[in-house]
Design a binder for these strands. Sequence first.
DNA 1: CATCCTGGGTCACTATTGGGAACTGTGGAA
DNA 2: TTCCACAGTTCCCAATAGTGACCCAGGATG
Lengths: 146, 146
Amino acid sequence: MEEGTSQEPGYCEGTEDFDVWQWHSRADCEVRQILDRIADKWSLLVIALLERRSLRFSELRKEVEGISQRMLTVTLRQLERDGLVKRKAYPVVPPRVDYELTDMGCTLHETIKALVTWTEEHQTAIAAARAAYDERTAKERELLGQ
Amino acid sequence: MEEGTSQEPGYCEGTEDFDVWQWHSRADCEVRQILDRIADKWSLLVIALLERRSLRFSELRKEVEGISQRMLTVTLRQLERDGLVKRKAYPVVPPRVDYELTDMGCTLHETIKALVTWTEEHQTAIAAARAAYDERTAKERELLGQ
DNA sequence: CATCCTGGGTCACTATTGGGAACTGTGGAA
DNA sequence: TTCCACAGTTCCCAATAGTGACCCAGGATG
């Protein structure tokens, strides 16, 4: 951590994207750490929901079905720390806190949307693949167990 | 589960992507479950590495720095089940197993690459945001503790 | 002949993370 | 006086990720 943050080694943007992955697969790669953060179950959903409009804490909790209070707090803190989400607290009682995407958060949403679109387009294929796989393994299991 | 899996309610592809998120934020949404799977720390890296060329188990383990044998197994199984990765086992001793992306896996790689590109482009901004956030909270902590 | 090695796993165990519920703090309402 | 709203925080426990030892089969080695 102390001497890290070196981001200009070898892999300049222009090269084939071959080498890029060499760097990214290294555990100490900063890109990989950021990816771990944003490619997260809850982060994706929160960013997605905030793109529509800013939301309050309790609204988010209701919209993101299944998230616990703690994880919503943690997720929002991380996103805020990364500069993807802005937190606006009003000193009123009861408290009111609005969360909204920053400009950077908005650009990320574009990319995330692509991922979701891909998922939508392929969900049938994936379901089919899963069914096929399960059937295959069931048969193998049968052969082994018989 | 019994009566779930209803995927044709309301949100047909053509509509504004407003409503889409309403569905996707629901815990029983299939798209959300698939997203959870593919937007996973290890899955991203594995797909990325396999796009270059097919790899053997041990090669993957070496390339994906920090992954454990078990997690690599689990990840590959999931990807295989989802039809994103093809597993080719040769009945030789010692065993040889090659993993490669399926066509669907390749299309997913395109999307993932976009995510990585975004991360590369914004990693400096994120680092800055984190530094700023940490400084801010440090100050607040100081005020509270003094 | 006995032993070891190799590669792709599995199994049993431990460390970390996430979920659930209870608690906090403040001021207005009942 | 007690209760409630909202946005958290804290604590405890269960689930999950991750670790290291072990397994299998046959060919090379001694």
